[in-house]
Nucleic acid binder design. Structure first.
Lengths: 196, 196
DNA sequence: TACAAAATATACCAATTGGTATATTTAAAA
DNA sequence: TTTTAAATATACCAATTGGTATATTTTGTA
């Protein structure tokens, strides 16, 4: 890793929480220089513009979350177990502190949908690939006999899971109430268990 | 209604969609003057600052949505019917066009949670009172015998309903896919029907 | 150790930000 | 119809915005 690569990574790590908390248009260049202790010169030496920093920060935040879940999902042998990783981790409030400022998906989605086409597309892809992963788990669960084939619509179930999770994170974040997150995750657990 | 009151209302109506699309920090004074055709003088003659306009715009957006749902809820005689108004209206994509820019609750919640304490508190109150209304419907449904008392946790169900709805709106907005909204609303319908 | 290249800092830019003081117009009351 | 007050417009303000050209420092390599 060259010096420049390290600096680039350093800028991303330092600004990722800022972008997640303040949003794209809420984060200024001075926020970026403050957070990194670097000057504009070195920011613009490593990134073409603010946009590039925001994009990299978003990628970083998503990966951070993704890695946590992937690690736990791999440990599980059954597909039901893999699906249950989500309510399990979220019940522990695990993530909300990892990525400061709440879920980067919902944060970026709500800000970018009407304002930032590039970022919008990135979020869309993240959501769709998340959905595909869930669909795969559900379908494989059906194949393996864990879930009953009839009456299950994998696509619908996957979308519902994502909606519940994102909605739950939003509610917990705005109310500061951890128990509401736990409550909603119980409902999600039930949905998964009803697949049997 | 005096002239000033009418102008104030005019400013709110014209800027409400802007704030909902661009967000608080994304909406500038020039956006406001552009949208209204008025000058800064008359904006600041009617509002103390940008904050006041944003707060009024948020209130306006929430009320607009609230009125639509209230009207339909009143028509329903059973509590199950009242709860089902949500999936029914959202399946038709009814709201997403009423309040331009998607759901003001999720938009404002994700932006304000880490940045704007006053707005944050307002969103929190909106969500909590929405939850209380749902809890009331569920409890009354139990009293009336529509729902079976045991195994129902009204608070948990209400929170889950809100999470699903908000998450669904977010997904539909970012993917531009109406059918995902319909899919998720079917899941919500099932949750409500399972209360029997 | 010298040197080229990469990385970072400095100092600037025009444009825009939210906000204000004052001038002008419009509307209501006497 | 005149006076007064309310409503709106004009013209400004300092501060901050994202961005850039250039100077300086740091780094790896010959």
């Amino acid at each position: 890793m060259t010096k420049a690569q390290r600096t680039k990574q350093f800028i991303i790590e330092k600004t990722a929480p800022i972008f997640n908390m303040k949003g794209y248009s809420g984060t200024s260049m001075s926020d970026i220089t403050d957070a990194t202790g670097l000057t504009k010169g070195s920011i613009y030496g490593n990134f073409a513009n603010k946009d590039e920093v925001a994009l990299a920060a978003f990628r970083f935040n998503v990966k951070k979350l993704h890695d946590i879940f992937s690690r736990e999902i791999e440990k599980e042998k059954t597909f039901k177990g893999k699906l249950l990783v989500y309510p399990h981790l979220y019940s522990d409030y695990y993530d909300l502190r990892v990525t400061q400022g709440g879920c980067p998906i919902i944060n970026t989605a709500t800000e970018a949908d009407d304002t930032h086409p590039v970022l919008r597309k990135k979020v869309e892809r993240v959501i769709l690939s998340w959905k595909e992963q869930l669909v795969y788990f559900i379908e494989q669960g059906i194949v393996s006999g864990e879930f009953k084939a009839k009456s299950i619509n994998p696509e619908k179930t996957a979308l519902t899971m994502i909606a519940i999770i994102e909605g739950a994170v939003m509610i917990a974040k705005i109310t500061g109430n951890l128990s509401s997150l736990t409550d909603i995750m119980q409902s999600l657990t039930k949905i998964i268990e009803d697949l049997e």
